[in-house]
């Protein structure tokens, strides 16, 4: 049993932040790695990337968007409630090196994961440029945290209610055109955003890493449900990822695979309401 120490609602209650007491995981987890949790006995196992950790007090932070049955169930939990199972750390940590200037692109809930990787890159001595985006001002999360980490930060919103109007790709393009010292781009967010970022950076031939989020069950390489096509080879996201070279990922296939269970999700939600 893992206790929720603190719960915080963000972005009009659609994005939730939990601080969970899990000392062993907190001691080991690195930026980019994820955990698998199961809320209760009848629950499903879902993967969530860890946004932050505190080894000293044994706390890991997860930030997730409410999209289906399990995340809705998680939202109904409060401070002091417990989660039945948390397994981790899983996946490979992000490969953090001193490269020079790197751009961190994040969209929606992806900013939560991006922030821990950005932090690691900053600590490694890189010049970090952040570009984060959301649909509207209310849905933007972790702006202040990103501001503290990044040397430069650009915010975009789809409707122009805050920061620049438009998508994250626009300021990214501007940076890529203006600066010649960019060594790497990290993009984490909705699949469509990562796909577009990769399309753009490919033109400029800049290495791009993305963090994928396919459907998973066990998270330890056992089921093969999270298979993704990278460089035309089958990879298991849970053991070979979750971070991959964005130029080699087959995003179309990932998008299709992630849409497979939408109908079941509806049945499950309706059942729980009854």
């Amino acid at each position: 049993m893992f206790q929720i120490v603190r719960k915080q609602e963000m972005a009009k209650g659609t994005i939730i932040r939990f601080d969970i007491s899990a000392p062993k995981i907190a001691a080991k987890i690195k930026a980019g790695q994820f955990i698998i949790l199961r809320v209760n006995e009848t629950g499903e196992r879902i993967p969530l990337t860890v946004a932050d950790k505190d080894e000293f007090s044994g706390i890991i932070t997860i930030i997730f968007q409410v999209v289906g049955k399990t995340t809705a169930l998680l939202r109904s939990l409060h401070d002091g409630d417990t989660i039945k199972d948390v397994a981790g750390p899983l996946g490979k940590p992000a490969e953090v090196q001193k490269l020079g200037t790197v751009i961190m692109v994040g969209g929606g809930t992806g900013i939560a994961i991006l922030h821990s990787i950005a932090k690691a890159f900053k600590e490694a001595g890189n010049f970090v440029i952040g570009i984060i985006g959301a649909k509207e001002k209310e849905l933007l999360i972790m702006e202040s945290e990103m501001k503290a980490i990044c040397d430069e930060l650009v915010v975009t919103t789809d409707d122009g209610s805050y920061g620049q109007l438009g998508f994250v790709t626009q300021p990214l393009q501007k940076y890529l055109e203006e600066r010649y010292d960019i060594k790497m781009v990290y993009a984490i967010g909705p699949i469509i955003m990562m796909k577009n970022v990769c399309g753009l950076t490919k033109k400029f031939d800049i290495p791009t890493m993305v963090s994928l989020n396919p459907v998973m069950i066990d998270g330890t390489g056992m089921c093969g449900g999270c298979r993704v096509k990278v460089d035309n080879k089958m990879k298991f996201c849970c053991v070979d990822g979750p971070d991959f070279d964005g130029h080699k990922v087959d995003f179309d296939e990932l998008e299709k695979r992630n849409a497979l269970y939408l109908k079941d999700e509806k049945i499950s939600l309706l059942f729980s309401i009854k």
Partner: peptide
């Protein structure tokens, strides 16, 4: 088999993992 046995998907939607 993991879905069916470990996650008890054969009892979906009582259990959350889709069958």
């Amino acid at each position: 088999l993991t879905r069916m046995n470990l996650m008890k998907a054969y009892k979906f939607p009582e259990y959350d993992t889709p069958m």
